[in-house]
Design a protein around this nucleic acid. Structure first.
Lengths: 345, 345
DNA sequence: GGGGGGTGATTAAACGTTTAATCGAAACTA
DNA sequence: TAGTTTCGATTAAACGTTTAATCACCCCCC
C-alpha cells in the first residue's frame, strides 16, 4: 500500500480510501490507484487491518467429534458460506470432551476469531465467551441458533414407510441422550397411523450388553413381522443393512431400511440407501449470517445479549429436511411371512 | 500488555521480554509480571504480533475434495499436530477443481498463512507460491513431502490374502489416474505368488458403461472362482461388500473383502471390514514439522528452494501402513465351487 | 473582496506487539 | 580511583492499515 502511494506520489490514506471506497477521492485518481494496485498485485495485509480494526475476518468452527462422518459436509457448508461473507474458517476439534471444548474455544479466541460456530452433540451447554457464538444442534436445544428440523425429517421417513404399506417398523437409535436423535424418533412416532406400530432399540444399549460391534438381532425382528428398519443415522442404517443382508434377508424385498444424513456411502452401497438429508448449505448460510450480523453490531458498539446468537428474523430457525428415496425402501410384502425369515442360509 | 506495564509501572518492552523470556529481566520482576499477567487473564493479541513479526502462526489446509470420507481423519491429524506446534489451521476446499485450487490458495495467502498443507489427488502439480508448501500424496508423486507408503500397504493386504490361501483375487480400483491407487495396486501385484493370479477392474470404467451406481458384476467373478476382493478404498470395498451380500454370497465364508483407509464405518458394518490404515498422525506430524522448519528458516532470512518442502532428514518420507484384520477376510474355501455361486435368492 | 461551504487530498495518531539501540547504575578490573 | 564490563530496564521505531482531524484550494454569494 505504501508502495502504491509512493509510485503515484499520494498519501497512503488516499490509497486506503480509494481502495475501500470510503473517504473523498476524485474518481480518476481512485481509478489510477486501483489500476496501480491491480498492477502490483497488491493484496491488503490482514495483519495491519486486524490490528487497527480489531477484526480478523476469521470464524472458528468447533466440532465435538471430528470423527463424525457428517464433518465433511458441515465443514464444506460452513467454509463456503463463510468465504462468501469474506471470512476464513479456523477449525478446532474438541474430542467429544467438554473440558477440551472450552480449551479449544479459548485457543480460537486467542487467535482473535470474530465469532465461533459450534456444532453441539448431546446438548452440551456452552459457556459465555466475549465473542458471538452460533450453535447448530436441534430446534429443541435451548440456545440453538439454527438447525435442521429433525422432527419433520422423522415424519418424512415415517410417512414414506407407512405409505409403502409398512405396519411394523423398527426404529434404531444410537444414543438415548442425543437430542437430535430423540427429535427424529419423535417425529417418526408422531406419524404412526393405520394401526402401525413401532419399537425402538438403542445401539449403545445393546452394545453395553453384548460388546461393541455385536449383532443387533435384526433377523429376529424380521421373523417377528417387522418389515422396515428406520435408523436415525446412515451409519446405523448401514450397520443394519449389512447385518440384514448377511442374514440372507433381501433388501428391500423383504425388509426396507432407511437412514438419516445422506452420508457419502449412501448412494454407493447396494441397495443404495433411502435417507433424509439436511440442507446444510442453508443451515450454514443462516448460521454465518447470524454470526456476521452480531459481529457487525458488536463492532458498532452495541453489546450482545447473553447466549448464542439468534437466527436473523427473516430466516427460519429450523430448516426442513428432504427425503431421498433410493433402492433400500420399497412396498411392504403383501403376504407376510412371520415364520422362517431366513437366518439359516 | 500495556495494562500490565501500567499496573507494575514498568515499560511494555519489559513486559514483552519477561513473557517471552527473551531480553534481560530480573527474575523477581519477571515473576511479578507473569503473576500479574495471569491475574488479568492476559493473552497476547495475535494481531499485533503478526503485524510486527510478519508471522500469523496459522497454516492453511487445502483439500481437493472435501466430500472425501478421509477428510475427518486428515483434518483431525493436521489440526492436532499444528496445535501442538502452536499453529492454527485454516481450511479451504478446492472442489476438485484445479482453478479453484489456485484461487483458494490465493485466499489463504491473503489471510497471511505462514504455510500450506495440500492434499493432492491425481497428481496435480501445485504452482510455486511465496510461502512454504507441504504436499501429501504418494511417494511416487514428484514433489511429495510425506505420505503413507501405499505400495507397502498393497503388499500388506496381498500377503494377508495369499496367506489365507486365496489364489484368484479381484482387485477393485476406482480411478485409473490416481497415483495413490496405482501404488496400492502395484504393491498388491508385487506379492502375487504360489501361482496366485489377479484381475483389476476400475469402478469408474464400468460406471462409464453402465451408469453410476451400477452393479459391478461381482457374483460373476465369484462363479469364475475368485475368492477375494481387494478394493483400493473402504468406500469401494463397502460397495463390493453390499453387492456380494445382496447376491447371497456370504462374507467371508465364500468371499473375502478388504479395503483401504479404515474409514468410520469399517468397524461397524457386518462383517466388519479388514483394511489397511495409514498412520495419519505420523504423516501430519512430519508434514507440519517440515513446514514449520521451512517457516523458521525463511524467517531467519534464508530463501527456500523451489517447490514443496521436503521431509526433515531424520524422518521417512513415506510412512508405513498397517493391516487391520477384521471379520471380512478369512481362509479361502478349500473345496472350490466354480459353479452355482448363489445370485438366485 | 472577504467570509462560508464544499471538495480533494494530506497529516498524524492509533491499534498491540517486538526489538534494536540506548542508558544509568552497579560491579568488576587494572 | 578511573576505566570498563555487566546487568536491568527504558526508549523509540517499526510492522500495515484505518480514520478522525486538518488543510489548501476553488467556487459562490453577499
Amino acid at each position: 500500500m505504501s508502495l502504491i502511494a509512493a509510485r503515484l506520489d499520494v498519501s497512503v490514506a488516499t490509497v486506503s480510501n480509494a481502495l475501500a471506497g470510503k473517504g473523498r477521492v476524485s474518481p480518476d485518481l481512485a481509478a489510477r490507484i486501483r489500476a496501480m494496485a491491480n498492477d502490483l498485485c497488491y493484496v491488503p495485509g490482514m495483519a495491519g487491518r486486524a490490528l487497527r480494526t480489531g477484526r480478523s475476518y476469521v470464524l472458528g468452527l468447533v466440532l465435538p467429534d471430528i470423527a463424525n462422518p457428517l464433518f465433511p459436509q458441515i465443514a464444506q457448508a460452513i467454509e463456503s458460506s463463510a468465504a462468501e461473507a469474506g471470512y476464513g474458517v479456523l477449525i478446532a476439534d474438541s474430542r467429544n470432551n467438554v473440558s477440551t471444548q472450552t480449551e479449544v474455544i479459548g485457543r480460537l479466541l486467542e487467535r482473535g476469531v470474530d465469532g465461533v460456530v459450534i456444532v453441539l452433540r448431546r446438548g452440551t451447554r456452552v459457556a459465555d465467551v466475549g465473542t458471538p457464538v452460533a450453535v447448530i444442534d436441534s430446534p429443541s436445544t435451548p440456545g440453538n441458533t439454527v438447525s435442521a428440523d429433525h422432527w419433520q425429517g422423522g415424519q418424512l421417513v415415517m410417512d414414506h414407510l407407512i405409505g409403502l404399506g409398512h405396519r411394523k417398523i423398527l426404529i434404531i437409535g444410537n444414543n438415548p441422550d442425543s437430542i437430535v436423535q430423540n427429535d427424529r424418533i419423535g417425529g417418526m412416532k408422531s406419524r404412526l397411523s393405520n394401526g402401525a406400530e413401532s419399537e425402538v432399540i438403542w445401539v449403545e444399549k445393546v452394545e453395553a450388553r453384548h460388546g461393541p460391534g455385536c449383532p443387533l438381532g435384526l433377523a429376529d425382528y424380521y421373523r417377528a413381522g417387522f418389515t422396515a428398519c428406520s435408523a436415525v443415522s446412515d451409519l446405523t442404517a448401514l450397520r443394519a443393512l449389512t447385518e440384514i443382508l448377511g442374514a440372507g434377508i433381501s433388501v428391500p424385498e423383504n425388509m426396507s431400511v432407511t437412514g438419516f444424513d445422506d452420508l457419502v456411502w449412501s448412494p454407493v452401497v447396494r441397495p443404495s440407501l433411502t435417507t433424509v438429508r439436511m440442507d446444510l448449505a442453508a443451515i450454514a448460510r443462516i448460521a454465518v449470517e447470524a454470526l456476521t450480523l452480531a459481529i457487525e453490531r458488536r463492532a458498532a458498539g452495541d453489546d450482545l445479549p447473553k447466549g448464542p446468537v439468534k437466527a436473523p428474523p427473516h430466516h427460519k430457525e429450523s430448516v426442513p429436511m428432504s427425503l431421498v428415496i433410493r433402492q433400500s425402501s420399497a412396498r411392504a410384502m403383501t403376504t407376510q411371512r412371520t415364520d422362517n425369515g431366513g437366518y439359516s442360509r
